Simulated assay, not measured.
Amino acid sequence: MTAVTAPLLQVRSVAKAFGGNRVLEDVSFQVEPGEIVGLLGPNGSGKSTLLNLVTGFERIDQGEVLFEGGRIDRLPAHRIVDRALGRTFQLPSMPTKMSVIEVAMAAATARHGFFDTLLGTRAAREAEERARVEADALLKEFLLTPVRDLPSSALSGGQKKLLGIVCALMGKPRLLMLDEPTAGVHPNLRNDIVQALQRLNRQGMTIVIVEHDMHFIREVCTRCIVLDRGHIVASCRPDELSSNERVLQAYLGGGRAATESEKVNA
């Protein structure tokens, strides 16, 4: 018999409101190991809120979130990171007085113990050296070695996004969630991000991406989940987006038939 693999992430009947604004309503989906899933939807559809709920930066009002079969929706964000679920941010903010390599190494602190680091124990020194080796390898993989010793705040927007991915990977995640990794990124760096994510996925990384760039979604994702006004309206392959009526209505508001596929195909 073929072994059945349990979903890596399960979101069950999740709802969230801010005051009288119902942002998410009865949202349910799951992510299987090895997938690259695009989380799409027009502005205000609830994508970033959903990402924040899954990663512990907001508390759900109802429903539950399970990672590797265990509930995580009651955990603070740093405990969710400890469970091997990493994320990046749409507008990464970098420390002004830390170099790129220092930021990457700091992202591994939780793994080798904050207090040990402060006390300078032998174990902490050994862990620091391992973290330096890991950080250097990731900086090389994401083409950041030339800026390794520069202040992280001096990086371009695209380089900061790459460093954000490096920091998330320093936590050894089994699921990586990315918030608009190509927004405002130079086309050359965008291609680097595409190749890096494809490489990570080939190595076994499961990835969820909040993104507006349809070309990027088609290049990278194996499946798309589409939100509209707080509800999931589609779960399909990227090549099915332009023929899915509910997706077209979500992006065009039920608008013109003559141009209904333009935005989805843009």
Rank of each mutant, 00 (worst) to 15 (best):
253 G>C: 08
108 A>H: 06
107 A>T: 03
161 K>F: 01
32 E>H: 09
39 L>A: 02
12 R>A: 13
60 I>E: 02
266 A>G: 01
11 V>R: 12
214 M>K: 04
154 A>P: 04
82 D>K: 13
128 E>R: 15
104 A>H: 03
30 Q>C: 10
14 V>M: 04
31 V>P: 10
162 L>F: 12
163 L>K: 01
240 E>V: 09
166 V>E: 06
164 G>T: 05
18 F>G: 07
225 I>L: 09
6 A>Y: 09
230 G>C: 11
101 I>V: 14
180 E>Y: 05
84 A>C: 03
232 I>K: 15
152 S>N: 08
207 I>R: 02
126 E>I: 15
244 N>L: 10
111 R>K: 14
189 L>G: 01
52 N>C: 01
82 D>R: 15
220 V>N: 01
162 L>T: 08
147 V>P: 05
148 R>D: 05
230 G>V: 13
90 Q>L: 00
112 H>W: 14
213 D>W: 09
89 F>W: 15
124 A>D: 06
113 G>I: 08
54 V>L: 13
246 R>C: 01
97 K>M: 12
88 T>F: 00
134 E>R: 15
201 N>G: 06
204 G>P: 05
48 S>L: 12
28 S>L: 12
34 G>W: 05
20 G>T: 11
204 G>A: 07
111 R>C: 09
22 R>D: 03
44 G>S: 07
246 R>K: 10
34 G>R: 11
128 E>A: 15
176 L>R: 02
224 C>Y: 03
43 N>A: 08
4 V>S: 15
129 E>H: 13
207 I>Y: 00
221 C>M: 04
38 G>P: 10
174 R>P: 04
103 V>S: 05
170 M>Y: 14
182 T>V: 15
46 G>E: 02
21 N>W: 04
149 D>I: 02
129 E>K: 14
102 E>N: 10
153 S>E: 14
178 L>S: 11
183 A>N: 08
176 L>Q: 05
253 G>K: 09
192 D>K: 00
145 T>F: 06
140 K>L: 12
183 A>L: 06
15 A>W: 09
210 V>E: 03
46 G>Q: 02
143 L>R: 04
153 S>C: 13
170 M>C: 10
240 E>W: 12
27 V>R: 01
106 A>I: 08
249 Q>G: 02
153 S>H: 12
23 V>Q: 00
117 T>C: 02
133 V>G: 01
102 E>M: 12
130 R>I: 03
263 K>Y: 14
30 Q>F: 09
247 V>I: 14
85 L>P: 07
131 A>V: 07
79 R>A: 15
30 Q>V: 08
20 G>D: 13
71 R>C: 13
245 E>R: 15
149 D>Y: 13
165 I>S: 00
186 H>Q: 14
102 E>C: 08
245 E>T: 14
243 S>G: 04
51 L>K: 00
191 N>H: 09
13 S>M: 04
150 L>V: 08
212 H>C: 03
244 N>Q: 11
143 L>I: 00
239 D>C: 06
83 R>K: 14
25 E>M: 02
159 Q>S: 08
144 L>W: 10
260 E>D: 11
206 T>E: 07
151 P>K: 11
8 L>H: 07
108 A>P: 10
163 L>C: 07
112 H>E: 02
